[in-house]
Design a protein around this nucleic acid. Structure first.
Ligand SMILES: [Mn+2]
Ligand SMILES: [Mn+2]
Ligand SMILES: [Zn+2]
Ligand SMILES: [Zn+2]
Lengths: 134, 134
DNA sequence: CATATGAATTAGAATAGTTCTAAACTTAGA
DNA sequence: TCTAAGTTTAGAACTATTCTAATTCATATG
């Protein structure tokens, strides 16, 4: 609970139990969970939490740079607690989304290939089979 | 109307006026329109078309490889009548989505960098400012 | 050309994900 | 401790999409 409140304070956000619980669940989680997954999970320890609070919290923390949203094909939003720049690998068989290091392909790198574009960000989604699904 | 019915027949799909109208609107269109945009546009010349038909048509034509869907951050689906492999550039200012040639970054190319992944497809979304927005 | 059969279309209902609302409650600061 | 601003809540509202079941249409066959 210490780190969470420190991070919230550092971003001028009120420290609330709900925010801390959401952050705690997400901390170190590499699953890219949906809002509903977060909601159901946090609800176990926090029975009165509202879905709206989870949505609000995700939005607030995202604006503060403490979370990001994964670029995925139209379905529900997937939340990413890894806010370092990185890419994603989506398994075409099991649907799992894995992190891929950014240096595999940086915006600079891409910008060199794509000289006619003014590239500030590059988001790469690789698709294939994950190790378990080969 | 000739080309459209030929393409439908080649894919064992019944030739209907609605399908042809959707295909005609999309043909040569580089805007990546939403289903609702297609619906409203086609409705002008075809007042009784149903939204469900547009959804059905987009799904059917996508399965047949005559259309694809653009990878975008959670909002409505964007339809792409350019089914060659290519990437996209999204303007962070005006939101426009432009096509980017595939050879700038192929799956093979990316696979060489990312040796530990079994990459079959790669989808790249570059972000920055388009020419009009610089 | 007439007919039959399966496929496609339609309007509207249903569903899913997300945002909004307004009242009640909490936090943080004076 | 008091206050003002910010947060939480349940549920309504909204938006995109899918489903339903009745109707219409396209195509194959005679
Ligand atoms: Mn990630
Ligand atoms: Mn495109
Ligand atoms: Zn897998
Ligand atoms: Zn622009």
């Amino acid at each position: 609970m210490k780190t969470m409140s420190t991070m919230l304070k550092a971003n001028d956000l009120a420290v609330t139990a709900q925010r801390a619980a959401v952050m705690e669940f997400l901390h170190g989680n590499t699953d890219h969970p949906s809002v509903d997954t977060i909601y159901k999970r946090v609800k176990k320890r926090f029975p009165y939490i509202s879905r709206a609070t989870v949505y609000n919290t995700v939005k607030t923390l995202t604006r503060a740079g403490l979370l990001q949203e994964v670029l995925v094909q139209q379905d529900k939003t997937r939340v990413d607690s890894n806010v370092s720049r990185h890419h994603h690998f989506k398994c075409l068989r099991c649907g799992r989304i894995e992190d891929v290091p950014y240096d595999i392909l940086t915006a600079k790198h891409v910008g060199e290939h794509a000289k006619s574009y003014h590239v500030e960000e590059v988001r790469v989604v690789m698709e294939g089979r994950c190790k378990q699904c080969r």
